[in-house]
Nucleic acid binder design. Structure first.
Length: 496
RNA sequence: GGUCCUGUGGCCGAGUGGCUAGGCAGAGCUCUGCAAAAGCUUCUACAUCGGUUCGAAUCCGGUCAGGACCUCCA
């Protein structure tokens, strides 16, 4: 079964066929670095990290481009043009670029914590003003944009006459022309549905660039079109982002690029659904965001505890990316425990001795079950990246692994080949494709100390000196280390 | 108001016609010096009404409820 992806453009799952054999170009809308990232932001970056990783797993050479929006958009279109980033900088009395740097660094830090792979190119909007101006000029030449008071607008009505404006978001152009909200200062535009490509900067505006139309700054949608075109070409494979960007952002990107490059920019449009909180989308409009720093520290009224980045990643992967995911502290606690169980199963698997398995499996049924569980993994991922089902299959393998470890299931039951395949599968799927990792720190010195303590405790237990053995266990518990006496006499430990 | 989506057991969630999803929580048992861990077993489902079908959580229609977009948003 080959990879199928749900294409928002056609509203269907389609077989993924790259434009250039063996290569994939993917553009994902990146963060606006005018503030701290919140849980909602984490979803697209983790989702498309999976897409990136899986495409690489399939052998594609991927060019993954994710921008940094550091030029800011309009606070509210039609009002006095106001750059979000410069506005906040003035309030905080620091340079706009200082603010941009701060939040860019914070974003990069969070992405590292989530164990996402870096994009191949991470272009900034401010670094591509020239490209954006060039693109706007070309759209004007083509006759689909007009200058008004030093600003440039895209002529949606004209575009819609010959193209399908609304094909991505399912909008009907007549409705758009009628129902778009009537804002102040709309008189610059020929039509309410028109969107800005370039906005004249008022005198006090800090972030400004020279252009053929006077000092100003780029409009909301043009940066993505310009950067995607520059690094991926007029037509590329995948464009990703959150569902809330479908309209007007992506719809407008299509319109701009279509006029400029004479073709639809991306073949497949992939959109992740929203994270909700008490049923409502997490977003600044609702003022219900949980920042990533708050999540990792537990410092938020809705959180009962801190949650590690891996817990959050796992939480997100347990749901299909096109479904909404409802956040609650309780759900994250469940995810944390689930991940722990899964990861411990993986660690147990790695500790099993290969020598205890034989060439032939004695339990053909169990052997077949395992092989089926592993064979299905590809099908699940190929079916529009169903990470939830992948994880479910691994959870089904965990009791079997634990059973072999405690002797409940004989090691003879499965073949050595299957055992090796399991080890490989856990590694490849959990670590390489799903990007999960052990969040526990390993400290060689501590390991040595623990070995010593465990040795002493074992001896004490053998001598029925339970006072000593309990003392070791209790005091370690107080020190934050949990000892677990296992069935075979071994003792394992973990930091709480 | 327009366009679209969703409604699964205590909680989170997968699942497009017949096969146990899975995780968390709960209950019982096994193992154990005790505890924890682990294993085994197990209870709660498909909003509602009607239709199609041999058979529907899954398809169709109505109703109710919630949500997203239409405006900055991941």
């Amino acid at each position: 079964m080959s990879l199928k992806v749900y294409n928002s453009l056609t509203r269907k799952k389609e077989e993924f066929k790259p434009i250039t054999k063996g290569h994939v170009g993917m553009y994902v809308c990146g963060p606006t670095v005018s503030g701290e990232s919140h849980l909602g932001h984490a979803r697209p970056y983790i989702t498309f990290d999976i897409v990136n990783r899986y495409l690489m797993h399939l052998g594609y050479k991927v060019r993954y481009v994710r921008n940094i929006t550091d030029a800011g958009h309009f606070e509210e279109e039609g009002r006095e043009a106001e750059d979000k980033i410069s506005k906040k900088a003035q309030l905080e009395k620091i340079e706009p670029m200082e603010l941009v740097q701060k939040y860019t660094n914070l974003f990069h830090w969070a992405m590292k914590e989530f164990n996402t792979l870096d994009p191949n190119i991470e272009p900034t909007a401010t670094g591509h003003i020239v490209e954006q101006i060039n693109m706007i000029e070309k759209i004007i030449e083509e006759g689909y944009a007009y200058v008004s008071n030093g600003s440039v607008y895209f002529d949606v009505k004209k575009y819609a006459a010959t193209h399908d404006y609304g094909k991505l978001s399912g909008r009907v152009i007549e409705d758009l022309l009628e129902t778009t909200r009537n804002l102040d200062g709309q008189e610059e535009k020929r039509d309410k549905a028109d969107f800005a490509l370039w906005k004249a900067a008022p005198p006090k505006h800090i972030m400004r660039w020279k252009s053929p139309w006077g000092d100003g700054f780029p409009g909301w949608h043009i940066e993505c079109s310009a950067m995607a075109t520059k690094y991926l070409g007029a037509e590329f494979d995948i464009h990703g982002g959150g569902m809330d960007l479908l309209f007007p952002h992506h719809e407008s990107e299509i319109a701009q690029s279509t006029i400029c490059n004479h073709q639809t920019p991306a073949k497949y449009w992939l959109h992740n659904n929203m994270i909700t909180i008490a049923g409502k989308k997490m977003g600044k409009s609702y003022n219900n965001v949980i920042k990533l720093t708050e999540l990792f520290s537990g410092n938020h009224p809705l959180l009962t505890q801190a949650f590690s980045p891996m817990t959050v990643r796992f939480f997100i992967l347990q749901t299909h990316y096109r479904s909404t995911l409802d956040f609650s502290s309780e759900a994250l606690v469940a995810a944390e425990k689930g991940l722990k169980r899964l990861w411990e199963g993986y660690e147990v698997l790695n500790k099993l001795q290969a020598a205890s398995f034989k060439l032939q499996a004695e339990n053909a049924e169990l052997e077949a079950t395992l092989l089926k569980l592993m064979a299905e993994l590809d099908d699940f991922m190929n079916d529009d990246f169903n990470t939830a089902k992948v994880l479910a299959n691994f959870f089904e393998m965990v009791p079997i692994i634990n059973g072999i470890k405690d002797g409940h299931i004989s090691a003879d039951a499965i073949s050595s080949g299957t055992f090796q395949l399991m080890k490989t599968s856990f590694k490849v799927w959990l670590e390489d494709i799903l990007g999960l990792k052990n969040s526990k720190e390993t400290n060689p010195a501590l390991n040595n100390v623990m070995e010593l303590l465990i040795e002493i405790r074992k001896e004490a237990r053998a001598n029925k000196d339970f006072a000593t053995s309990d003392k070791i266990r209790n005091q370690l518990t107080e020190a934050g280390i949990l000892l677990k006496d296992e069935k075979d006499g071994n003792i394992s430990w973990e930091i709480q």
